[in-house]
Computed example of a mutant assay.
Amino acid sequence: MPQDDATVKRNARSERRAERRAEMVEAAMAAVRTHGAGVSVAEMAASAGITKPVLYRHFDDRADLQRAVGQRAAEDLMEKMAPALSEDLAPRAQIAAVVDAFLGGIEDEPELWRFVVHNPAERETATEIVEDVRGQIALVLSQLLGARLRAAGRDSGGAEAWAYGLVGMVQSAGDWWLERRTMSRADLTGYLTALIWDGAHGMLGEGEERSPVLRMVPADSDGVG
């Protein structure tokens, strides 16, 4: 059914507004990269070439702006992790690939990560965003683990709980590493892979010998670079 002129104009305005809002989110992200996680709304508006009042025509408040930035940052992180989550690798290699992809994502955007996850000005919003990102990763990971467990003839009932536990552990370790930098990303990927694999290979019925938790497993083990 053809749309009338009023509907067409209304849809066009809505599309332009959505496009403008997306442009402002990108500008806000650029401001975070330039000024750090403590960036002000005024600095984000200036990055978009507008004033705060104009910015707030497109966002309800600072929390709404942070939520939009967080959602966009989460999409970027998931895009970086998608190959590791979807690629058909040996279990241990896939664990290393997923861990390294996550660490690489936060290493590439440290200030954006801090702004989204640890922003004291909007703690409740930050918690919502973290839970959303954690949920997205855990969902994919639990499906992967469940499929692996069923293929090995094992009980897959704990796959979701296991996935959330793994995501939380890697996130906490990543936060620590981002602030301390006492080891390389490859080393941290190796340590976390060794720790996770000790539990995973037994659950999946793999025949490889256990690696001592404190012995670093190279990040390129099983073909992962």
Rank of each mutant, 00 (worst) to 15 (best):
D100Y: 01
R134C: 02
A90Q: 13
I50K: 07
L55W: 05
D76C: 09
S47L: 06
R114K: 14
T127A: 15
A45N: 03
D61S: 10
A63V: 00
G105W: 11
E131G: 09
R114V: 08
D100F: 00
E109I: 00
G36F: 05
R57I: 07
V117W: 09
V133T: 13
A93V: 06
M81D: 10
R72C: 03
R134L: 01
P83H: 07
A84R: 08
K80R: 15
D132P: 00
V116W: 06
L89F: 00
D61A: 05
E43R: 05
L77E: 11
L55I: 04
M29R: 13
E124L: 12
D60Y: 09
I95A: 14
P91H: 08
M78S: 09
A48C: 10
E131I: 01
A97V: 06
L103E: 02
G49L: 06
Q136D: 08
A121V: 14
A101G: 06
D61G: 04
P83V: 07
D132Y: 09
G105F: 12
E122S: 12
D60G: 00
I129V: 11
L77A: 15
P83I: 13
G104I: 05
Q71F: 11
L89Y: 00
A82W: 05
S47G: 08
V116P: 01
A68P: 09
A97C: 05
V54D: 06
V69K: 13
V117G: 02
V130Q: 12
P83C: 12
V32R: 10
D61V: 03
R123Q: 12
T127G: 12
H35A: 14
L77W: 12
D76P: 03
P53G: 06
L55K: 02
P53F: 08
R57D: 10
H118E: 11
V99Y: 11
E75R: 12
A45H: 02
E128D: 14
G104Q: 13
A101L: 03
R62Y: 05
E109W: 00
G105C: 13
G49I: 04
E128Y: 10
A48P: 02
R114A: 12
V41Y: 04
G38H: 08
L65D: 05
F102G: 05
A96L: 15
A90D: 15
W113M: 08
V32W: 05
Q94P: 09
V117T: 12
R57A: 11
L103F: 11
V99D: 01
G49C: 07
E87Y: 02
V116M: 12
I95W: 02
A93Y: 00
Q66W: 07
M78T: 15
D108L: 14
E75Y: 11
E75P: 05
T51Y: 03
F59E: 03
A30I: 04
R67C: 13
G36H: 04
R114E: 10
A82R: 13
G135A: 04
V32Y: 08
V32E: 08
D100W: 01
